[in-house]
Design a protein around this nucleic acid. Structure first.
Lengths: 344, 344
DNA sequence: CTGAAAGCGCTTACAG
DNA sequence: CTGAAAGCGCTTACAG
């Protein structure tokens, strides 16, 4: 069945394609009221639906933006995507989401594909492995916003957590609960991924400020599949930490898995707090203490920044937009048998 | 900065646009080896990247399919999407994902938008509220595959769980564990959503076959926010069920929430099994028994069906493709203080 | 082996 | 208020 196109409508309504096009673009002042009615009627009769691809080619705008997440498995990514979609919907923009799987090669393919598809802009959780490509885009003035992660040496609008503040919240909370031997576990630090690096350094900084000893054996940056081993090693130290900070949700899951497998009780054997809320935080035993990221606000901010760039209304210098996390206290950090040791 | 287009390459390589186009489409037999090299070089030099929008307009194929999920909050949806994406990637297709939020109005908007964007086909978790639109699409021969849900009276290739079998697994497992008073809770049955309806009827059927009494007060189909109340009511009956089946993951979460809030012990106060795996099933206390859906296989099947339709290689009659779930035994259904009552 | 021409379905100056 | 014409960046018969 042949699709009905604009010339069919024009013929049916006895006007030119130009006028139908004006109608489609709601420029009703360019036509008589009767003409308008005829077009309206023909469109309905024929079930005409304008071809967006043709329109995009002509107007050189697709009203579509691309979103490339480094790792869709993080709950944070999913929330951010939803926020971006909401913000875009309001402006009649659509989004195409791609998952780079933390692989710079895939990321590059996706960026190139999305640009070939003529997206009007890109929001990226950068893997960090495509410096040249990123910088090429910024040089060309291609609308670009980074989220969650920075790329060193590149001036791009970036939206991310105030990681230092998040670590202050976490460490201080644990100190309040009587802990002084605190460890941190996060995913691999090898690729210098911003939140991981900043959380570890923020952790160290706060520990120092609190006058607490930082033990290098209690700081682990490991691939997910290495975390079980890393925990074993960390907890077999003497002394070993009485409290652990999980750098993100996936790490938190691994720590919980370790505790279950080894019959360890949280918070009795060690207290636990993580960055990123988990869906089951409040129904878990114990309920989980977390520093939650304002994912919705952050996604919204990224989308707004990008849309402003696309509409050229934003000519300001790129800057870094930091958002503060919030401490949610659960029972995974309540007073434990270790706590009392603190001041003894 | 002006984008480089095919004519720039043609000029630079001293050939016609036609030949460059042949090159882009890898029809190298249509050019001399030297010509090919010159084009190659020019493309690299100029950083040319073909405009997919223009290509799509001409070839009337976008190599993009749309995926509309009824509710992205279900983990099953997320898994299916990933499977679809993987399958599409292999065929160089891209996907645009939309979330209808269980709202037929939104679903309709998305379908129309995606068609206007000229997607080559659609995979839908149908809300069920757009019968006319669905049937219009099938009449026009638009490539369409349903997943998770059927639409009555419409012959569309559909991929879904063998819900009856899933309920057999669940009920029989509970009976094995000594239960005879079994209830089921799922999300609202008002809109006749396939998996919910089929799971309830499959439950009833199996109960009957097992010679067990079905108590209507122990069957709840409720909006998520009503589930807490429904559980309270169900569990305050006398007698009340000693085991509950959760119709899906979100329902399972609500039941767990209810147990925590009311200090109920699973499986001591009631045993619990649900359809859909939960990410934290094995680290939860107790670990959760579930009937898992082969989400990856199902997503893959849906994508394969659709891609075959798009390539016209599939001229077979639409049919329903059922997949069997798998029982994963956790501790939420182990022997409980109620179990012994069964045969007494 | 290569190129000129037509056309995909729209939009937009421009002329009347 | 309305229409003819050109053009967006490709692809594809077709001619040579």
């Amino acid at each position: 069945m042949r699709k009905v196109i604009i010339s069919d409508v024009a013929k049916n309504a006895n006007v030119s394609k130009s006028t139908v096009s004006q109608y489609l673009n709601k420029r009703y002042e360019y036509m008589g009221v009767d003409t308008k009615r005829r077009i309206e009627k023909s469109i309905k009769e024929l079930g005409f639906q304008a071809n967006i691809v043709a329109r995009s080619l002509k107007v050189k705008q697709t009203s579509t933006i691309g979103v490339i997440v480094a790792n869709i498995l993080h709950d944070f990514s999913t929330k951010v995507i939803r926020a971006i979609e909401d913000a875009c919907n309001k402006e009649n923009f659509h989004i195409i989401v791609c998952n780079a799987d933390d692989d710079p090669v895939k990321e590059k393919q996706y960026i190139e594909m999305l640009i070939a598809k003529q997206v009007d802009g890109l929001i990226i959780f950068p893997t960090g492995g495509n410096y040249e490509l990123y910088s090429e885009m910024t040089e060309k003035g291609f609308p670009l916003v980074f989220i969650d992660r920075l790329v060193k040496g590149l001036a791009v609008d970036s939206v991310l957590l105030d990681n230092k503040h998040a670590m202050e919240l976490a460490v201080k909370h644990l100190v309040d609960k009587g802990h002084s031997k605190i460890g941190i576990v996060t995913t691999s630090l090898l690729r210098n991924v911003t939140p991981r690096v900043e959380r570890v350094s923020g952790f160290v900084e706060t520990m120092n400020k609190q006058g607490l000893e930082v033990n290098n054996e209690w700081i682990k940056g490991l691939e997910i599949q290495e975390i079980q081993n890393g925990l074993k090693q960390m907890l077999s130290q003497n002394p070993s930490p009485t409290a652990i900070i999980a750098g993100n949700d996936l790490t938190m899951m691994e720590i919980l898995r370790y505790a279950v497998k080894n019959n360890l009780n949280i918070p009795k054997d060690f207290a636990l707090i993580g960055v990123d809320e988990l869906a089951f935080a409040d129904i878990f035993t114990p309920s989980l203490s977390t520093i939650s990221q304002p994912a919705f606000k952050m996604g919204n901010a990224a989308a707004t920044l990008l849309l402003n760039k696309i509409n050229k209304s934003n000519k300001t210098e790129p800057s870094i937009h930091r958002f503060r996390g919030e401490l949610k206290v659960g029972k995974s950090t309540i007073y434990s048998r270790y706590s009392k040791r603190v001041n003894s």
